[in-house]
């Protein structure tokens, strides 16, 4: 149990996908302008990370590993995740239209996002069990959510700030992102020692 909590917390804070692994930067810079689109995107990411892990972990363990096909991991995972997200979208549209409306725009955007593929591959590389892999995916999604929401706040402040001409737009956003990411470095070493 302790191990699961450590995995969850370190996925959120220490190994934050955006701020320390630098995966999923595209939606981070693209959709973080407004709080509501940032939360919509984040929930879609959490959702897809969970179902992607739930499907790719068994595929790796019971299909690729027994036949020594580990080198096909990337292509198989991309194929499966893309299909899965499409399938989920069709199901949502049919049975839960309200959820489809709020997640709908963001689902196709993140089908082949590197953060999603990153989570599934890292779960295998770390040698997690199925439960640990699911918890890690949840933590990674929550970490993505945290970074998106925090950064949308930072960006709304930037909108009104008097920024030198050369830094306007993307440059100042990247500077702000790196400072936010530096602040997350402060969590390093905290989680392991919590339960020591």
């Amino acid at each position: 149990m302790t191990k699961l909590i450590i995995i969850l917390l370190s996925a959120v804070f220490i190994n934050n996908y955006i701020l320390s692994r630098f995966l999923g930067i595209c939606p981070f810079l693209g959709v973080s302008k407004k709080l509501d689109s940032a939360t919509g995107m984040s929930f879609a990411v959490i959702f897809v990370m969970l179902i992607a892990t739930a499907v790719t972990w068994p595929i790796q363990m019971y299909l690729l590993n027994p036949f020594n096909l580990g080198y096909l991991q990337t292509i198989v995972f991309i194929l499966v995740i893309a299909t899965l997200v499409q399938l989920v979208e069709i199901i949502l549209k049919r049975y839960i239209p309200s959820l489809h409306k709020s997640l709908g725009v963001y689902l196709p955007l993140i089908t082949t996002n590197c953060a999603i593929l990153g989570v599934t591959i890292l779960n295998i590389d770390e040698g997690y069990t199925f439960a640990e892999a699911m918890v890690n995916s949840l933590g990674s999604g929550l970490g993505f959510f945290l970074a998106m929401v925090m950064f949308s706040g930072v960006r709304s402040k930037l909108e009104g700030a008097d920024i030198p001409k050369a830094f306007e737009g993307l440059p100042i956003t990247l500077v702000a992102a790196s400072i936010t990411s530096l602040s997350f470095m402060g969590f390093g070493g905290v989680i392991e020692n919590l339960f020591a």
Partner: peptide, 22 residues
């Protein structure tokens, strides 16, 4: 295996989009 996975994925999507068309 890749071809089989691809075909299965395609079949699932086709069936789903037919069955659950809105």
């Amino acid at each position: 295996p890749i071809v089989i996975i691809g075909l299965v994925c395609a079949a699932v999507l086709v069936i789903a989009s037919k069955l659950m068309a809105v």
